[in-house]
Structure formats: structure tokens, C-alpha cells
Write a protein that binds this DNA or RNA. Structure first.
Lengths: 218, 218
DNA sequence: CGGCAGAGTTAGTGTACCCTAATTCTGGTA
DNA sequence: TACCAGAATTAGGGTACACTAACTCTGCCG
């Protein structure tokens, strides 16, 4: 197999890192994959040989159109599966990530099509992330973090980054879910907590958690 | 990870081969895995090192209790998933095998529990094969092949081996499914076709197909 | 604009599987 | 019982990814 599960993971991670960093540096990939930078070099060389990445030594990598296609397929699988687990199997939003991480690499097109159909061809996963279409189109996503707001701002939560189950449970407890309206009451300076009103209740959100919550300002 | 997906496949295949051959020979494993015997030797050595197999060089292997446990878990996953695909996602019985082959290695305990519950803790998969319980108990299975019957025999189909989609489509067309009653009308000598009555209709079954259909005599 | 810290790459290992070719064992037969 | 065919193993090689240690490049700063 030319594209292994590991390589799919590399491409997926590079896609995500590319949102904020381009070209994507070896170190970022290593950190995101939880491996050593030296290990990354070999793999990105291989991926650039097979034309899924553009690789400029010492500079970083960029996905080629072919590489982006693979990445978006994996992301589509991941997000569809997350939603399916919630809707059809009763998972909660903090439980779906790890399961989807495994399933995303092995499901067939048929499986993908079936669950997409059963879910009514959804556009968002349980964390509010857009689901790429089958032909690789993905909606824009909000990039304004809750942590970047100021006192007085009103906004609607659009998406929550999903890798950390504990964090998600914490946010769920505060009712900070996609769709929720928040009003920023005050912000502690220099990366402290944020005080918000959600559902009429005042809550304090740690800065780290607020970094993973993205909003649309009103 | 000590137990890779490949190793799970080895154990699963050895479990199945053990039904008719014990100890299981290197060549049988190689044939079933579609690889060379030389490759098998190395892996079964490793599996015996980690106490999942008893290995007697030049003689063959036997599953240890620990190895059998792993094999039965994989088989449980496989069969539950096959049934789930049929019941919940509208797959037909000839489409489920390949999908299950991949999914069986990646689903979590939680996933297994959820689908088992949704399916009402079923005992048989779509091909009539028994589903091992969570603690590794598996029901006896019929070992009498349709191809071994004689004219005049009446029997009920209990299970159909499932690896080959074409074969399953062929059998489905003849209504040879688990639960169906068959009466043997005549048998061509020396491994020829078998003529049976199913659902009141006369059908001719090729010998190779009949080898994979197992029955309970009345 | 030289030098240094940190980023990145190379070199050398190890594990997991796979292959082919060569060798050795086993079991049945002449 | 000696031999041979077929089964199994060893030997040697390849790919895919990991690692650590050593070296090199880049970019920034004084």
C-alpha cells in the first residue's frame, strides 16, 4: 500500500497545521504526532517522493493538491464517524475522538456513503467542525478564539477543538457548546481566565480551554 | 503494541484452522494468509515467545488459552460488525466480510458493547456463524457440509462460510440461507453438483459452493 | 556580518513483516 | 532402512517507521 494509516495521519495533521503555518515545519509535525523530529524527516521525504507533499529541506512542507485530497478524505471520515457515533450509537462528544481516530483509516467508501446518507449529509460534526464534502470542499471555519475576546463582546460558539476528552467534559459542564451564545463579562489580563455569561449563568473559563473554543462575533 | 493487526489475523486464522487440524501447520497458515511459509515461521516464533501460541518446530502450532482469547475477541468483533452492517446500515450478506475484516481490529470495547446491545446480544451472525460471548464462550457449530449429504437427506442450513462475496450472491440466488430447509434430490458422483429442493423449488448447487454450506440433518 | 541557538537532517539501530533462495527436517515408501 | 518429496526453517534482503546521537543549516542578534 502506498498510503499507510500513518501517512494518512501525517497528511491530516499537516493539513490542520497549514491553517496557521505554511510551510509546515518539521518540529510542528513531530509535536503534533508525538514523535521525534528525526522520524518526521524520513516520512515527509517519502511523501514528497510520491507527490503528496512539496518538501523544501530546512524550510518545511506544503500539501500538493493530491495530498490535500487525501487529507480531506481522512478528515471527512473522521468527522462523519464522530457524528455517527453520537447520533446512532449514543456516544457523548467527549468520547468520539479516539474511536474516530482509528475508524477513519479503515472504513470503505460504501460505509462512508451509508452513514452520510443516514445522517442526512450533515455539514458539521459534533464539535461544530465542518465536514468536507466527498469531492473535497470544506466550509470556512471561524478562527476567532474565545480567549481573544474582550469584555462586552457577544458571540456565538461555532466550534470546539476536540482532541481532549477532559477539556470537552469541562466545557460541556459550562454549556459551552457549538451554537451557545456567550457574553464576555470580563477578562483577566495576561492570559488569565475569562468570565462569561452563558444561558443566563455566569461562568469562569480557564484560558487554555478558551483557546480551543472558536466563535463568531455578533 | 505487542499485538498488531497482523498478529490478530494470524491468531484468528489459526483458531479457525484448528477446528480441523491440530497442531496447525505452517503451510496451512501461509495459504490462509496468502503469504509465503517462510514469512509465517518468523511470526509464529514471535507469537510463541509472547505465549499466545505453543510452537513445536516442524510440527505446527496450537493456541494457548491466552491466544485463543485474543482470537475469539477478534472473531466476536468480526461477527458482531457483520451483523451490525446488515441490520443497521443495510448491507447485504455478501458485502459485509471485507468491511468487517478491517473494522474488527480497531473497534473499542465501548463500540463492541454498544452494537451488541443494539442488536440484542445476538448469537448468530448473518451467515449463521455463532458469535462468541464477551468472555470467550462460543457455541458449537455444524460441521456437516451440504456436499456430504446423500439423495433423500433432509436438512436445515445452519451456516455458510462467508469469505467469498460471489459465492454468497450465488447462494442467495438459490435461497440457500441459514434456516432454509433442503431436501437432497440427487448427487452427481465424484464431487459433482448436488440437486436439492429448497422452498419447493429444485436447484442445482455446484460442489464447491456446497462445500461451504453446513447443515443439521433432520 | 560573525557567531550561536535551535531547527533540521544524516547516520546508525531496532522492530515488524514481507520476499526469494538455500538448506534441513520429517515421514512415508521402496 | 535408506532415500526422497514435500514441509519447514534459516539466511539474506527490502520497506516502513520509530529511536538516539552527531552533525549541519538558518536566521537572528549583537
Amino acid at each position: 500500500m502506498l498510503i499507510t494509516q500513518e501517512r494518512e495521519d501525517y497528511l491530516k495533521i499537516i493539513y490542520k497545521l497549514q491553517q496557521s503555518e505554511s510551510p509546515v515545519r518539521t518540529n510542528s509535525i513531530a509535536r503534533a504526532m508525538g514523535i521525534e523530529p528525526a522520524s518526521v524527516t524520513g516520512v515527509i521525504k517519502k511523501l514528497s517522493e510520491i507527490k503528496l507533499l512539496d518538501y523544501r529541506p530546512y524550510k518545511g512542507v506544503t500539501l500538493t493538491p493530491a495530498g490535500e485530497k487525501v487529507a480531506l478524505e481522512v478528515i471527512r471520515h473522521h468527522r462523519l464517524i464522530e457524528l455517527y457515533l453520537v447520533e446512532a450509537l449514543g456516544y457523548s462528544w467527549d468520547e468520539v475522538h479516539d474511536e474516530a481516530e482509528h475508524l477513519e483509516h479503515v472504513v470503505s467508501d460504501r460505509f462512508e456513503d451509508r452513514i452520510a446518507e443516514m445522517l442526512g449529509h450533515p455539514e458539521l460534526d459534533p464539535h461544530g467542525e465542518p465536514i468536507p464534502t466527498k469531492d473535497g470542499v470544506i466550509a470556512e471555519t471561524s478562527t476567532q478564539a474565545l480567549s481573544s475576546l474582550s469584555a462586552g463582546d457577544r458571540a456565538v460558539i461555532s466550534r470546539v477543538e476536540d482532541e481532549d476528552g477532559d477539556l470537552l467534559r469541562y466545557l460541556a459542564q459550562l454549556n459551552l457548546r457549538p451554537g451557545a451564545s456567550v457574553e464576555v463579562l470580563s477578562v483577566e489580563p495576561y492570559g488569565g481566565s475569562i468570565h462569561v455569561r452563558v444561558d443566563g449563568k455566569s461562568e469562569t473559563v480557564g484560558q487554555e480551554a478558551a483557546d480551543g473554543v472558536f466563535v463568531d462575533l455578533e
